[in-house]
Computed example of a mutant assay.
Amino acid sequence: MQAFQCTHLGPPDELELNTLPDPTPAAGEVIIEVHAAPLNFPDVLMIEGKYQMRPELPFTPGAEVAGIVTAVGEGVTHLKVGDRVASFVQLGGFAQQAVAPANATFPLPNGVDFAEGAALPLAYGTSAHALLDRAELKAGQTLLVLGAAGGVGLAAVQIGKALGARVIAAASTDEKLELCRQNGADDTINYSTQDLRSALKELTGGKGPDVIYDPVGGKLAEPAFRSIAWGGKYLVVGFAEGEIPALPLNLALLKGASIVGVFWGEFAKRDPKKNLANLHQLLTWMGEGKVKPYISARYALADVPQALKDMAGRKVTGKAVIEPQR
């Protein structure tokens, strides 16, 4: 099979497209013929050695896949050869075949496109865990989503609406905000041209958002947290801007607010049954038309370096996917 490998840390152009032996499953694993593998911002950080997880070299990036099961390892009973599935593989997605843990792999309904299904495990899994488990978001509450046009951001917008919240989407361009409105956002803030705190004060009548979903970090974190409602929850999802913010803890005291970490990968590992329950809820919402991953770009396997450069350059909205069988 063909797969892109990171043989040394560096930029996307230095990844190598190599021919590797076809994989075989160990106990508790399945082999998936990969039809779609979404890009995620950690893919860019990982190949440059800037992510918290540093795999042993060489490795194949790509954290999630969708495709067809071609082999089943010992002890796997809920999946069989020929099943259409999606999975969180952590590594190995940018390849024609991937090894997947069976407990992180779930069947896809026939009507679900592989690219849309592949976006569920990480982006939608993260946002579902954040809003269902960590924030316990309720109908009628106000949710602020920063970086709302990205993969996890749009997922949070859609899930927030599915839960009955009022959703304020914040992003850096009017074009991105229009995409957020098309995906259910009630109100929008362009934080390149508007003052975030003033806009939030106006939109919420001075109350502030009950829940803040922040996958961006950097300079937006403090003004967002200063705007949070009394008793609010600030979800620390990631640091796409690159800078890890240092929040003044007196703000948490003054607002009676909580700073809540969201580490979906560790959650999925520690509580796979709850994670699968969240994914089944997502599939239910998808069937009801409440959740639909937005696929902005599709790339062939040979285009992985360019796709990662587009991701690093903030040119990707929603989800972009690699389609290795093209």
Results as ranks from 00 to 15, higher is better:
residue 212 I to S: 03
residue 210 D to E: 13
residue 210 D to R: 07
residue 205 G to R: 09
residue 202 E to P: 13
residue 193 T to Y: 02
residue 208 G to C: 10
residue 221 A to D: 08
residue 199 A to C: 08
residue 213 Y to M: 06
residue 209 P to K: 00
residue 194 Q to G: 04
residue 220 L to P: 07
residue 192 S to H: 15
residue 203 L to I: 02
residue 219 K to A: 15
residue 218 G to M: 08
residue 198 S to R: 14
residue 202 E to I: 12
residue 216 V to T: 11
residue 210 D to M: 05
residue 216 V to C: 10
residue 208 G to T: 02
residue 197 R to A: 13
residue 196 L to V: 07
residue 197 R to Y: 10
residue 197 R to E: 12
residue 194 Q to W: 03
residue 218 G to P: 07
residue 194 Q to I: 03
residue 194 Q to P: 08
residue 197 R to C: 10
residue 206 G to Y: 03
residue 202 E to F: 14
residue 203 L to K: 00
residue 193 T to E: 05
residue 195 D to T: 10
residue 195 D to I: 09
residue 217 G to R: 02
residue 192 S to P: 14
residue 213 Y to S: 03
residue 190 N to R: 03
residue 202 E to Q: 15
residue 221 A to H: 05
residue 191 Y to H: 04
residue 208 G to Y: 00
residue 217 G to H: 03
residue 201 K to L: 12
residue 200 L to N: 02
residue 193 T to N: 10
residue 195 D to V: 11
residue 195 D to E: 14
residue 204 T to I: 10
residue 197 R to N: 11
residue 197 R to D: 10
residue 201 K to V: 10
residue 197 R to K: 12
residue 217 G to P: 09
residue 218 G to I: 00
residue 206 G to A: 04
residue 192 S to R: 14
residue 217 G to L: 06
residue 214 D to V: 06
residue 211 V to R: 00
residue 218 G to V: 05
residue 190 N to G: 05
residue 223 P to F: 03
residue 194 Q to K: 02
residue 195 D to Y: 09
residue 218 G to D: 07
residue 193 T to P: 11
residue 195 D to N: 14
residue 209 P to I: 00
residue 208 G to D: 11
residue 195 D to C: 12
residue 213 Y to W: 01
residue 198 S to N: 13
residue 215 P to S: 05
residue 207 K to W: 11
residue 200 L to Y: 01
residue 199 A to G: 10
residue 190 N to V: 01
residue 209 P to L: 00
residue 211 V to F: 02
residue 196 L to F: 08
residue 216 V to G: 08
residue 215 P to E: 08
residue 210 D to H: 09
residue 216 V to R: 03
residue 214 D to I: 06
residue 216 V to D: 11
residue 190 N to H: 04
residue 201 K to A: 13
residue 222 E to T: 13
residue 222 E to M: 09
residue 214 D to G: 11
residue 197 R to V: 08
residue 218 G to Q: 05
residue 214 D to W: 02
residue 216 V to P: 11
residue 191 Y to N: 06
residue 221 A to W: 00
residue 202 E to G: 14
residue 204 T to W: 07
residue 204 T to K: 09
residue 211 V to M: 04
residue 216 V to A: 11
residue 213 Y to E: 01
residue 208 G to L: 07
residue 203 L to M: 09
residue 218 G to E: 06
residue 222 E to H: 08
residue 205 G to Q: 14
residue 203 L to F: 07
residue 204 T to C: 11
residue 208 G to Q: 08
residue 213 Y to G: 02
residue 202 E to K: 15
residue 213 Y to C: 03
residue 217 G to K: 02
residue 219 K to N: 14
residue 220 L to T: 05
residue 191 Y to K: 02
residue 209 P to A: 01
residue 218 G to H: 00
residue 211 V to I: 02
residue 221 A to L: 08
residue 218 G to A: 06
residue 214 D to N: 12
residue 202 E to W: 14
residue 215 P to G: 09
residue 190 N to A: 07
residue 215 P to A: 07
residue 223 P to R: 01
residue 193 T to V: 09
residue 214 D to M: 10
residue 202 E to D: 15
residue 206 G to C: 06
residue 201 K to F: 12
residue 193 T to I: 07
residue 206 G to Q: 04
residue 205 G to T: 07
residue 198 S to C: 12
residue 203 L to H: 03
residue 209 P to M: 02
residue 206 G to R: 03
residue 213 Y to L: 05
residue 196 L to G: 08
residue 208 G to H: 04
residue 192 S to G: 15
residue 210 D to T: 08
residue 196 L to R: 00
